[in-house]
Simulated assay, not measured.
Amino acid sequence: MKILVTGFDPFDKEKINPALEAVQRLPEEIAGAKIIKLEIPTVFGQAGIVVGNAIELNKPDVVVNIGQAGGRFAITPEKVAINLADARIADNAGNQPLDETIFTDGQTAYFTQLPIKAMVAAINAKGLPAAVSYTAGSFVCNYIMYYVQYLIDKKYPNLKGGFIHVPFIFEQVVTKPQQPAMSINDIVIGLTAAIAAIATSGQEDIKIVGGTEH
């Protein structure tokens, strides 16, 4: 099995993105699955092109996109991506779509094919907080989750895809009072456990149906 795992570059004036830092620290193999690591830009449109090219090149069995969700306490696998780009802030190229459809021929929403409850249980078993999330927001994180699901719907029916949000790391909250954070080592442990749950899951696939900051 090959699993493509992506992490976004820093955005919104941050100097670091825990998603990318954690992805870069993942093992080369998890539960027998080869891990392919990829940095992607926090840019609408461009992020999809980079991931789409990586899928074509590497032909993975699973794509897991990782993103930062500042303000969240837990590691949160996402259940659903919506066909909406509505940015509170500009992306790293200055794009700030408002109330835009991502793909006019796409479904209103797509559910992940990943065993997210098993992933949460695996993270919790490591003594770390995790929970299923039902909103990936409407920024580039939701965009890339939706983009991969769209590719699955239209081009790669045997591919599985999903998204995991991670909290800030401690370095990011030094000047952000009351913001939750997690150590980068714990995020790596949590993501490794979640990916192991994907690699070893015997659950039946969740079918894509039409009708999740960052």
Rank of each mutant, 00 (worst) to 15 (best):
L4Y: 12
V5H: 12
T6R: 11
F8E: 07
D9S: 13
P10F: 11
F11V: 03
K15V: 07
P18H: 08
A19E: 05
A22V: 07
R25A: 14
P27Q: 09
P27M: 09
E28D: 15
E29I: 05
K34W: 05
K34F: 06
K37D: 08
K37G: 09
L38G: 11
L38T: 10
I40S: 09
V43H: 12
F44K: 13
G45L: 12
Q46N: 11
A47E: 13
G48N: 08
V51N: 03
N53G: 06
I55R: 11
N58Q: 15
K59Y: 06
K59R: 15
D61M: 10
D61V: 09
D61S: 15
V64W: 05
I66P: 07
G67A: 09
Q68P: 00
R72V: 13
F73W: 11
I75K: 05
I75Y: 03
E78F: 01
V80H: 00
V80D: 01
A81M: 07
I82Q: 01
I82F: 03
I82L: 05
N83E: 03
L84P: 01
L84S: 02
A87T: 04
I89F: 14
I89D: 10
A90S: 15
A90K: 15
A90N: 08
N92C: 13
A93H: 14
A93V: 08
A93Y: 12
G94T: 10
Q96P: 08
P97K: 13
L98T: 12
T101Y: 01
I102Y: 08
F103K: 13
T104P: 00
D105K: 05
D105S: 07
Q107N: 11
Q107W: 13
A109Q: 03
Y110M: 02
Y110L: 02
T112F: 02
I116A: 00
M119Y: 02
V120C: 10
V120Q: 05
A121M: 04
A121C: 01
A121R: 13
I123M: 11
I123F: 10
N124Y: 00
G127R: 11
T135E: 05
T135L: 00
T135S: 14
S138Y: 02
S138F: 02
S138A: 14
F139T: 00
V140K: 06
C141E: 07
N142H: 07
M145R: 05
Y147L: 02
Q149F: 11
Y150V: 02
L151P: 07
N158R: 10
L159Q: 11
K160R: 15
K160I: 02
F163E: 03
F163W: 06
I164T: 04
H165I: 04
V166M: 06
I169R: 04
F170I: 11
V173N: 12
V174P: 00
K176A: 10
K176I: 02
P177V: 02
Q178H: 12
Q179V: 04
Q179H: 12
M182T: 08
M182N: 05
I184E: 14
N185W: 02
I187E: 08
L191V: 11
A193D: 11
A194Q: 04
A194L: 04
A197P: 06
T200C: 03
G202C: 01
E204L: 13
E204K: 15
E204I: 08
D205S: 13
K207W: 01
I208Y: 07
G210T: 05
